[in-house]
Amino acid sequence: MDGTDLDLDFTEEEVQRYSRHILLPEVGGIGQAQLRRARVLIVGAGGLGSPLLLYLAAGGVGTIGIVDDDHVDLSNLQRQIAHTTASLNQSKTASAATAARAINPLVTVVEHPFRLTEAEAPDLIAGYDIVCDGSDNFTTRYLVADACLRARRTLVSAAVLRFEGQLSVFKPHLHPEGPCYRCLYPEAPPPGFAPSCAEAGVLGAVTGVMGTLQATETIKEILGIGESLSGRLLLWDALATRFRTIRVPRDPHCPACSSPHV
């Protein structure tokens, strides 16, 4: 995102709240204004979406949308830190929005308390600058990835299972050599091929690390700083305490992004 037409007029509260950002040469006042102007959609207010949401709100991302049709369950609290025991049975969007506003009342949080469908996804995603996928099922993942591709929106995608996590950025509309999600995973696996966290389990802190990394990459994309994860897949093995990054080239024959219109 460029710095044109930015409002650089900060209140004293904003200057104090974001002072540690503003001190960074890579952020400064212009970067903080870019964060304030940004619109980010989070798909899934669960283990990944919770730390992601809280750090984006704390960092001053101006508008944050949250999509989730679920309600807070006791089994969520082991990892979904945006929710508390007091929010049991509340909708996850309402609970997460309350947590975000408690950290930073200056940001706008928009609740989308429904399951994303093919009918709703295009218009919803087109209304945001960046989409962060932390969903827990393949149907939603592919729906979001395809809608981001068509809408020319950057997708920051993370996933976790047991003691492992992965993260990448997909933006073929901005990075000509960068892949789309289907370049990496052409089709969803058949039902039952890959267990869910509800079936196989997940260490709560693993979702915290990956959600925080997802927030970091999102902020980098908003500010245009550092090296993007576009074209790379970050893999983390928590038990081995090992990070590794593998190259993901764009598939010239990908049926999703090989069109010259992408």
Rank of each mutant, 00 (worst) to 15 (best):
R101M: 05
Y18P: 03
I81F: 01
Q90S: 06
F10T: 11
G127M: 01
L74E: 08
T84W: 09
R250K: 15
Y181I: 09
D5N: 15
S91M: 06
R115Y: 05
R153Q: 04
Y185I: 15
D146W: 10
V160L: 03
I66H: 08
M210R: 02
G204D: 11
Q214W: 00
D251I: 14
A147Y: 02
G47I: 07
A200V: 08
N104W: 06
C257S: 13
I64L: 14
L235K: 09
L35T: 03
A188W: 07
T241Q: 13
K171L: 09
A119P: 02
E227D: 14
E120Q: 08
A121C: 03
E118G: 14
P195A: 09
R182F: 15
A38W: 00
P191R: 05
F243R: 07
G28Q: 04
E111W: 05
I30N: 07
A97M: 09
T98I: 02
Y55W: 05
A45T: 03
F170N: 01
H175K: 10
T63D: 03
V206W: 03
P195E: 10
L24G: 09
L53A: 15
P186V: 13
D69V: 06
P195L: 03
H261Q: 13
V61E: 00
H173W: 12
T63S: 13
A126E: 09
T11R: 11
E164K: 07
P249R: 12
D69T: 04
G192C: 06
A126C: 06
S50Y: 05
R150K: 14
S19I: 12
D251N: 15
G47T: 10
G3A: 15
V156C: 04
L35K: 04
Y181A: 10
R182H: 15
E217Y: 00
G44D: 05
T93R: 07
S135P: 04
D5C: 11
G127D: 13
T154V: 04
G201H: 03
L74S: 07
R250H: 13
S259Y: 09
N89F: 10
A215W: 00
G165V: 00
Q16T: 13
D237K: 01
Q166E: 03
A119W: 01
L24F: 06
A147S: 15
Q214K: 00
L41D: 00
L116M: 07
V131M: 00
E13W: 14
R37I: 08
T218H: 01
D73V: 09
H253D: 15
I103G: 02
E12Y: 11
I219P: 01
P179R: 07
M210H: 04
P113S: 06
A147F: 07
V110F: 01
R20M: 12
A100K: 02
P189F: 06
K92F: 07
S19P: 07
A57T: 10
C183P: 05
E12Q: 15
Y142K: 04
P252D: 12
E227I: 07
D2H: 14
